[in-house]
Design a protein around this nucleic acid. Structure first.
Lengths: 144, 144
DNA sequence: CCGTATCCGAGGAGATACTG
DNA sequence: CAGTATCTCCTCGGATACGG
């Protein structure tokens, strides 16, 4: 009991949840963790099997896949269905709640693609400026 | 040099960024961290001063405020303006890029408020079910 | 007022090995 | 196939103290 290090917030957290009530934190807690969004994104297209997700999402580990799935299931975003066939087959599908969230994610992804280049550029500019300062030299003044 | 523990991803990360190119990760890296969203949200309403943000955002520490601000500035989401008055005055304002992102955040917040109750309910249901299993008893079968 | 530097704990996440 | 259990590393982020 009293399991340590469950990752992904925790589950069955002390019953007394604590009254945050802040919507910002609620959202963050749900989409943070490297994998939640990608899983919802994948499951929203069509119900997916465990192994399927493992292949669909590049760097995910078995552990994090399981933990994130449980977390999403707990929040009522995914439904886990088990078919008691011989090697057992498990399918995860999104709920209505998650489908709406999915739309919000799409908006976010859209932003990411439209602003990718500008962010990269801003970053490069910021870094080179910081570097110049660190070297106590005049900015962007090329040697030769 | 080679400073440890800068928090908020890191800045000036080894120059060679590594080619992820995954929009999902890009978004996540920007909105993860407990404070980014709230800062953008606040600065989007009107340009804000450092201390102002400190008061506006409840639990934030000076450290995290600075770190997150730098990170957002680096990504071209915030602009830092210094007025060389006597005790110096610094104002942070959002860029166009950030204003679009702000809209996406609003969508997310909207979702959070609309689904707050259903998530809470789903969580309670999941937890009580798990608890019943843990006690090796029949589910939801009240004693008396 | 606007930060920076340092110390340190909590928990997120990978690697690996084992089970029904 | 679909997980669970451990062990461990590392990043995030709070507390605190100091500097221009």
């Amino acid at each position: 009991m009293s399991q340590r290090n469950t990752g992904v917030t925790d589950q069955v957290a002390e019953v007394g949840d604590g009254e945050d009530a802040c919507p910002v934190r609620e959202v963050l807690d749900r989409i943070s963790g490297k994998w939640s969004i990608q899983i919802v994104l994948a499951a929203a297209e069509k119900p997916v099997r465990f192994t399927e997700l493992e292949r669909t999402i590049p760097g995910i580990s078995r552990r994090m896949l399981t933990l994130t799935l449980r977390s999403l299931e707990r929040d009522g975003l995914l439904v886990r269905t088990v078919y008691p066939t011989v090697p057992a087959k498990v399918v995860y599908s999104v709920t209505d709640s998650a489908r709406e969230l999915h739309d919000a994610f799409v908006t976010l992804m859209d932003w990411a693609e439209r602003n990718r280049s500008s962010v990269t550029a801003a970053r490069a500019a910021y870094d080179s400026a910081a570097l110049a300062v660190a070297q106590e030299e005049e900015p962007v003044r090329v040697p030769r």
